[in-house]
Design a protein around this nucleic acid. Structure first.
Length: 429
RNA sequence: GGCCCCAUCGUCUAGUGGCCUAGGACACUGGGUUCUCAUCCCAGAAACCGGGGUUCGAUCCCCCGUGGGGUCACCA
């Protein structure tokens, strides 16, 4: 860190509580967090709740929960307090009122229909964006705009400027969609006789139609990922890779490594497409890297104790390399816990014979071990001149109801002699 | 439409004037391991939007097109 720069880095994210925790918010949080922590600065949450109509109950908590789930912590915020409290705009109304009054008195704003409008001088404005370089807007683009609504609440553009100023925000790192707001905010800083913070406009996450992620049709609610059984670390890692790349081209890395190697210079300008394929792969990578015992705990937690840790522990080695998310566990391995319906159409031609002989053989196994089962079943296949693949496939279907499962002999061992035979005997002639 | 931003394989990206016959990853295809699926290993197909410049030399610099996106509220 360059000590001579003096100013301590302070960044913020400014979500509005209009529903749930949004991936876009998580994305902005990720880059702000990394930038701040990389520079030993502060990461702040400020709630932009100045739209009374759009305010949704519980949305505030959902945002904290979502961000915490992903592993972020913030230094100041509505729930945490801090030197520049309050951090909720609805609790700062007096401040905006006062500032608006100042502007009014200086003749830089005027009243109209109960609202206060900023009198825009119409100068050309521009700034050096940290990720995009020079951006300029011709004067005249920005007209007079409302800063205080008639309901006594500030508008977004006004509140942002006042708060960033008062909260001593040094870098405003936000989505590209805010570029067009920046001229207004810059005009305000100038009118207030204050120096503006640095700006960095991140690319916008897009869907497959190349449009900005939509609340209606895209999976943007963080809880979706929680429910589907993604690891937060994997989601974060995935997000890191959108618009940013590791200097050494690494793909799998932790949040702390991201923080360590982060720089805004490596942020791309083009808006990346949020494509879950790669997320699935990353999640699988993280899953496979976990110790079996960790995986057991996480699965147990995911299913809210529905299955005992003992049961889970038995099957974990078999499913670890086969699931991409926790929610896939039941489709892949549900048969361990509960007998599945079997569609007889799935069976091959001589299935009854296969099953009969399997029952016959398995009944003779007294020490129920993988070795014995392997040995005896294979001998049985040979003796009867079965086709190995066909035999095991019919066995698999009879026991699990599915064609794709963990290795069948291992499964039989776990299921136990009694349960296995019970399932097979249903097909006795 | 005005203004602004952007443009390398299908997707995420490396690249910062010669190291590029453009590299990696996901996805895809083929093969190997295997009782299925998966993991793992190997191989393959796949891109610098177009046109002008600048330069001895452009994916990289400039201009113009084209395409995509964002934004134009008393929403944030």
């Amino acid at each position: 860190m360059v000590a001579s720069e003096g100013k301590k880095v302070r960044v913020r994210i400014a979500p509005s509580p209009t529903g749930f925790a949004h991936v876009g918010t998580a994305y902005a949080a990720l880059f702000n967090y990394a930038f701040a922590k990389n520079k030993g600065g502060k990461f702040i949450i400020r709630l932009e709740d100045t739209d009374v109509k759009r305010h949704v109950k519980d949305a505030e908590q959902a945002i904290y929960d979502g961000l915490a789930w992903l592993g972020f912590s913030w230094d100041e915020g509505p729930d945490k307090g801090g030197e520049y409290a309050p951090y909720k705009q609805s609790e700062r109304l007096e401040i905006y009122k006062e500032k608006a009054k100042e502007l009014l008195e200086k003749g830089k704003a005027y009243e109209e229909d109960g609202a206060i409008r900023f009198k825009n001088p119409g100068d050309d404005v521009g700034w050096k964006d940290i990720v995009r370089g020079d951006i300029n807007f011709p004067g005249g683009e920005v007209t007079d705009f409302v800063i205080m609504k008639s309901d006594g609440f500030p508008t977004y553009n006004f509140a942002v400027v006042i708060d960033d100023l008062l909260m001593k925000i040094t870098h405003v790192i936000r989505g590209e969609e805010h570029i067009s707001n920046t001229p207004r905010q810059l005009a305000l800083y100038k009118a207030l006789n204050e120096k503006a913070p640095e700006f960095a406009h991140l690319p916008t996450l897009r869907n497959k139609e190349r449009k900005k992620l939509s609340k209606r049709k895209d999976p943007v609610d963080l809880r979706i990922y929680q429910k589907e059984g993604y690891l937060p670390e994997a989601l974060v890692n995935f997000l890191c890779l959108l618009g940013w790349s590791h200097p050494k081209e690494k793909e799998i890395f932790s949040l702390s490594e991201f923080v360590k190697s982060f720089s805004l210079e490596r942020v791309r300008k083009a808006g990346p497409i949020f494509d879950k394929d790669k997320l699935d792969w990353i999640n699988g990578e993280y899953l496979r890297k976990l110790d079996d015992s960790e995986l057991v705990d996480k699965i147990w937690e995911f299913y809210n104790g529905k299955y005992s840790k003992g049961e889970i522990a038995k099957i974990v080695p078999l499913i670890k390399e086969r699931i991409k998310t926790f929610s896939e566990l039941e489709t892949l391995a549900g048969f361990f816990f509960e007998e599945q319906k079997v569609d007889k159409e799935l069976f091959g031609k001589g299935y009854k014979e296969h099953i009969d002989k399997a029952v016959e053989t398995l009944e003779k196994v007294d020490e129920w071990s993988k070795e014995n089962i392997d040995k005896m079943l294979l001998a049985n296949v040979k003796k009867n001149n079965f086709k190995t693949g066909n035999f095991f496939m019919d066995l698999r279907i009879a026991i699990t109801g599915k064609k794709f499962t963990p290795p069948i002999n291992d499964s039989i061992v776990i299921l136990g002699k009694e349960e296995t035979l019970k399932r097979l005997k249903k097909y006795n002639k």
